[in-house]
Amino acid sequence: MSKTLLYLLFTIYLMATSGYLLHIFWRRSFVAKASFVLIVAGVILQTALLGHRWWAAGYLPVTNLFATLFFFSWALALTYLYFELRYRIRATGLFVMLLNLVLLGGALPRDTTVSLLIPALDTPLFSLHIIFSFVGYAFFAMAFSIGVLYLCQAQLSTELLPDLPTLRKINEEAIFLGFGLFTLCMVAGSIWAHIAWGHWFSWNIKSVWSVLVWMFYAGMCHAKFIRRWQGGVYAWLSIAGFGVVLFTYLGIGLLLESNHPLE
């Protein structure tokens, strides 16, 4: 992948994020609109880059940290677009797009070459496992952002952000959709593990933490029914949940050693 295009993509997202930031202080609708248009352009460019890498490699290239950060960033941008088109969340997007910049920024200095696919990963089950996992993670990241904004809004009561019931609604939706997609990731991963290693679940640290992520968000699909937890506690849980996701995705690889094929 050309580094120039990658930097162009980063610049587009950076300009969009700056636009949203500017919109907070200079409330002109065309600023927010321009930011949104930039994000759409960024998503189109990122989709084309991802598609090109997929086509060139002959398989979905998500086998190293650059590729997963890039894919995660793409999924997060798409998730943002989904919520923006549905709820017109505008300034709420600032936080999500900042997170996206962190992901893409983390990918920029890394080696972009597509490594040769090891035979164990050469199955559509692996692609499904990865696609669903990162799209699920993107929704959890969205829920995290919304959780933070919910807590801000509860303190500030600002017109810049959607009202609390809307934020709560978006948060619950992000958690539910994330859980559903992550569930599909777990099913594909278990079938793949069965054919690749002869067991559908094994007690290695990455698999154990993936189950923990799943259980946590399954719990959250129910926690919204508890009246006293709706809103504030739920927002905190969304933040904690994303901590579990980050530890599973990055922490295990960076802090602990894992024998998961992606580490």
């Binding site: 035979p119 164990a120 050469d122 199955t123 793949w192 069965h194 054919i195 690749a196 290693w197 002869g198 067991h199």
Partner: peptide, 13 residues
């Protein structure tokens, strides 16, 4: 790799 023998609960790979 990724194409085991599966029979009666057995997985041979």
């Amino acid at each position: 790799i990724n194409h085991p023998l599966i029979y009666d609960g057995l997985v041979i790979l």
